[in-house]
Amino acid sequence: MIEFTFWDIARNLLLAARWTVLLSIVAFAGGAIFGVAILLARISKRKWLRRSAEYYIGLFQGTPLLMQLFLLFFGLPLLGFRIEAWTAAVLGLTLCASAFLAEIWRGGVQSLPSGQWDAGSSLGLHYVAQLRLIILPQAFAITRAPTVGFLVQLIKSTALTSIIGFEELVRTSNAINNATFEPFTVYGLVALIYFVLCYPLTRYTKKLELRAAQR
């Protein structure tokens, strides 16, 4: 018989939480980089680019993340890509994050008065320079609160990757559960770990929102 003490449970869950944190960071960074590309397409002057970006965003915001993960996980091998649960998790969350971040930032870009663009062009700045020097920095600044808020969503979303077999916090908790038969303790601890990860970010979001409102 395999025995677990409370500390074995807590220690193993904390060790597994490292994967949750790592996955969140990688997906957020990847999502931000890819999200900028989607944003540029979404606000491009070319209609087909705008349209494609719109569909991309609509697709990821209109279907469950769980399905997106399943499709990558079972679909990519059919195309000859051999992917692990880790790769599918990173790829799925990155793509999904890019869609959500692009949409958040687009809101920021659109909320800027058109005078900002005019001012840029009157300075003789070219489209890309206007974006880089004037528009994007302001758009990012305005949307800092929802961006951090989305990071909280993303951390929580990593829980779904347990279903495709990625060994993060929830999946580890399932395995521990079946060795200890103490679901209340195990899931309680899991909830606590997520809370500790997310709550400071939520507080930070609130602070940013307040600051923005006071301005």
Partner: peptide, 10 residues
């Protein structure tokens, strides 16, 4: 999660 065939140890 399949004791005693295969399950997590401490």
């Amino acid at each position: 999660d399949f004791p005693p065939f295969s399950s997590a140890s401490a």
